[in-house]
């Protein structure tokens, strides 16, 4: 056999536009914030709305991040994801009501301890429920999208009815822990303490997820599985176990999001998860199915857009996020940070 010349590749230097292209979705958030500043003449109102939008975005991210991974990893469309949000909220609120002594005390440490217990309780309950949901409802319909939609939708209805059986049909009103009520004033703007906590928590969860996905072997398996599950298995990894783990983690995160969302609205109802699903789906779609980073950016955009538009033109607020989705999909039809799937 004749020998061909050596293959000696070199690294090409990318142009500025090429180097910036992957960062364009990230730049959308500061661009929207600047647009908000230009559109809202009062700086303190703008700052309040921005923090409020970021807090809302973080909570939507908590609820949506599990769904995007579940879809990306196993191609499962889970319309029942909202059930975990509702159950998480009810369990969390129940724990908080039981810990009235802690939540009513004017001590940030005691209040945060109560919230921590509520979050742990909610995440344990929704994680366990996620395991059962995957086993009973999702597993039999792998590979059948239409059946997945119908069956998971049915699962959602069943869970909503179970909530009504367990907690009653009425909405439950809950006030935030004492130290998290009210606002602090910064640069003339009133920033609600609870929203600042939500922003902090969202950032911590995002950083944790990103670290897990980027720096650990299990994260590598998940990212590779999103792209080409068959090959991950051919390398020797039991993707089924990984998927169940991701489903449980995603359900637990939705439960966490449910607690935060419930306290944000100060009322919980059996249908709150179902109502949140519209925003969750918008975020998952515009982020790029299977992309955690895309989901995070999408959630921030949705939160900011909702708050700015509700202030500027309340009647348009309802459709503003649909408009955002249309605009982003016209720019990037596969979402902002699409995950390349194996053919």
């Amino acid at each position: 056999m004749s020998m061909a010349p050596e293959h000696a590749p070199t690294m090409a230097r990318l142009s500025l536009a090429q180097r910036l292209a992957p960062w364009m979705p990230v730049l959308l958030v500061p661009l929207l914030v600047v647009a908000g500043l230009l559109a809202i003449p009062n700086t303190s109102s703008w700052l309040t709305l921005t923090v409020s939008g970021l807090a809302m975005g973080m909570m939507i991210f908590l609820m949506a991040s599990g769904l995007t991974l579940v879809f990306g990893l196993m191609d499962v469309i889970n319309f029942g994801h909202g059930a975990f949000v509702s159950v998480g909220a009810f369990v969390g609120v129940s724990v908080l009501l039981m810990l009235g002594g802690l939540t009513g005390a004017p001590s940030l440490a005691l209040n945060l301890a109560a919230m921590g217990l509520a979050v742990i309780g909610a995440m344990l309950a929704t994680g366990a429920m996620g395991w059962a949901f995957e086993k009973v409802i999702v597993e039999p319909v792998y590979g059948h999208h239409l059946k997945q939609i119908l069956v998971t939708m049915g699962g959602l209805i069943v869970v909503e009815q179970l909530i009504i059986v367990l907690w009653g049909p009425e909405e439950i009103y809950i006030s935030r822990p004492e130290a998290l009520k009210g606002a602090i004033t910064f640069a003339g703007a009133a920033l609600e303490k609870y929203r600042l906590v939500a922003v902090g928590l969202g950032l911590v969860v995002f950083a944790g997820m990103r670290w897990t996905l980027r720096r650990t072997k299990i994260g590598l398996i998940v990212r590779a599985g999103v792209e080409n599950g068959e090959m991950v298995q051919a390398l020797g990894y039991r993707l089924r176990l990984v998927f169940v783990g991701v489903f449980i983690a995603g359900s637990a995160l939705a439960g966490l999001g449910g607690v935060m969302w419930g306290l944000y609205q100060e009322v919980v109802s059996a249908h709150m998860g179902n109502q949140a699903m519209i925003l969750i789906f918008i975020v998952v779609i515009i982020g790029g199915l299977g992309s955690v980073e895309g989901c995070f950016i999408g959630a921030l955009l949705v939160g900011l857009m909702q708050n700015y538009v509700a202030f500027l033109e309340p009647k348009v607020a309802l459709i503003s996020n649909i408009g955002l989705m249309v605009a982003i999909l016209m720019w990037r039809p596969m979402g902002m940070i699409p995950v390349v799937k194996a053919k």
Binding site: L220, R223, A224, E227, M231, V340, K343
Partner: peptide, 19 residues
């Protein structure tokens, strides 16, 4: 079809293969 993970770096592909 090679089955490489396009979203992962070369290093990550190799780390994953070292089971």
């Amino acid at each position: 079809d090679m089955g490489i993970f396009a979203n992962l770096t070369v290093e990550e592909n190799m780390v994953l293969a070292a089971v």
